[in-house]
């Protein structure tokens, strides 16, 4: 048989590609649920890390089950809120119902297109609230979690992740603990043009800004835009009285104001 004829070549490549596609589809189907379980535990551990309950590595060591159990025991309430800041739904804590990264992506489109959106807020028993952010980095999406104190303004901590930023440069948003450490103790300031920013140099002394990463301008800008966009989407929710009260700290705050 002439393996160099055109017809043979075309048929051969087509068959190879179809077989490979079938194998990949089959494997993806079989392993899908296991991967989803790992991704869920990963997301939970990122939320916990942002809220300063242990660090990412320690959760990886403790395993998926321990991570989910800690979430069940320590989360007071998980809700979804809309643009007006109204509560639109409750996420089941026992089932560890959380927004996956792909759900964040969907909501990100809704925010950008000016459509209705529903965003999650995870409220811990100690009053810490965790909200996600999502946007475009240089090579792919970047996302993360910002944990806020009961006053809804002070940042307890943050954790960021990405799909394909360059290791050692943009990858530092995830890999460099000193980058996320900068967020601790900062403030969100809605009276500013940008409630929070990641800026080149110059963040020193500003309560609502952190320094960008050297050599990763595009990733830093992308993350900055993601944070600004999502904080904008959460603006009404973060002013809402009910959320203050749910955390059990609202009373004291109001008293102080009086």
């Amino acid at each position: 048989m002439n393996t160099n004829s055109n017809i043979y070549t075309v048929i051969y490549t087509a068959v190879v590609v179809v077989i490979v596609a079938a194998v990949l589809a089959f494997v993806s189907q079989k392993l899908g649920p296991m991967q989803a379980a790992n991704e869920k535990a990963e997301t939970v551990s990122q939320i916990l890390t942002a809220a300063q309950f242990g660090d990412k590595e320690s959760w990886a060591e403790k395993g998926n089950a321990a991570t989910l159990d800690f979430y069940r025991e320590n989360v007071e309430k998980a809700v979804t809120v809309n643009a007006k800041g109204e509560e639109t739904g409750v996420l089941d804590i026992q089932k560890v119902a959380i927004y996956s990264v792909s759900q964040l992506k969907t909501q990100n489109y809704n925010i950008k297109d000016g459509k209705d959106f529903e965003l999650p807020v995870y409220i811990f028993k100690n009053g810490t609230k965790v909200i996600p952010v999502y946007g475009a980095g240089l090579w792919g999406p970047v996302w993360g979690y910002i944990a806020l104190e009961p006053d809804n303004r002070s940042i307890v901590g943050a954790y960021f992740d990405h799909e394909g930023e360059t290791p050692g440069l943009g990858g530092k948003i995830k890999d460099d603990p000193s980058f996320r450490a900068q967020f601790v103790g900062k403030q969100i300031d809605y009276s500013d043009a940008k409630p929070f920013s990641i800026i080149k140099g110059g963040a020193k002394g500003k309560a609502n800004a952190v320094d960008a990463i050297t050599g990763a301008t595009m990733t830093s800008k992308g993350l900055d835009a993601a944070i600004v966009e999502w904080l904008g989407a959460y603006e009404h929710a973060l002013f809402l009285e009910e959320l203050f009260k749910m955390a059990g700290e609202g009373e004291t705050l109001n008293n102080e104001e009086e």
Binding site: T3, N4, Y8, Y12, V20, V23, L24, L31
Partner: peptide
């Protein structure tokens, strides 16, 4: 013995890519 010589690199690439994705999955 079956790979057409003109597209052999592409076929190799498809096979390697398949293996890499399987390992990753």
């Amino acid at each position: 013995k079956t790979i057409p010589n003109r597209v052999r690199i592409i076929v190799q690439l498809v096979v390697v890519a398949l293996m890499v994705i399987l390992v990753d999955q």
